[in-house]
């Protein structure tokens, strides 16, 4: 299960950072070793949190839609809930 989570996190990270308009994923906290993709599960529902640095060329709401699609596809979970924070725009 832990392995499954780790590989899902890695797949999400890879797919998100390769989207045009995404500059970087930031760690979830300043603590050393903090993950960039946080997935939590309660009941049957999974939730994914991301902090993103984005390119000023791409409109935010378009990018959020693309990130949502990419994350759900990478996770193989169309019902995955997302929390996306745009932490930097340049």
């Amino acid at each position: 299960m832990t392995n499954g989570l780790a590989s899902r996190r890695a797949a999400i990270e890879l797919d998100v950072v390769s989207l045009p308009g995404v500059r970087a994923l930031y760690p979830s906290s300043p603590l050393p070793g903090a993950p960039k993709v946080v997935i939590s599960e309660h009941g049957g529902a999974a939730r994914c949190e991301l902090r993103i640095a984005v390119d000023g060329d791409v409109a935010a709401e378009d990018l959020i839609r693309e990130v949502t699609v990419a994350v759900r596809r990478a996770a193989g979970d169309d019902a995955l809930e997302l929390h996306i924070e745009l932490a930097s725009i340049d």
Binding site: A60, E61, I64, R65, T68, A79, L80, E81, L82, H83, I84, E85, L86, I89
Partner: peptide, 9 residues
């Protein structure tokens, strides 16, 4: 934003 997604800046 899409249903099931929360997004903030």
């Amino acid at each position: 934003v899409p249903v099931g997604t929360e997004a903030v800046v």
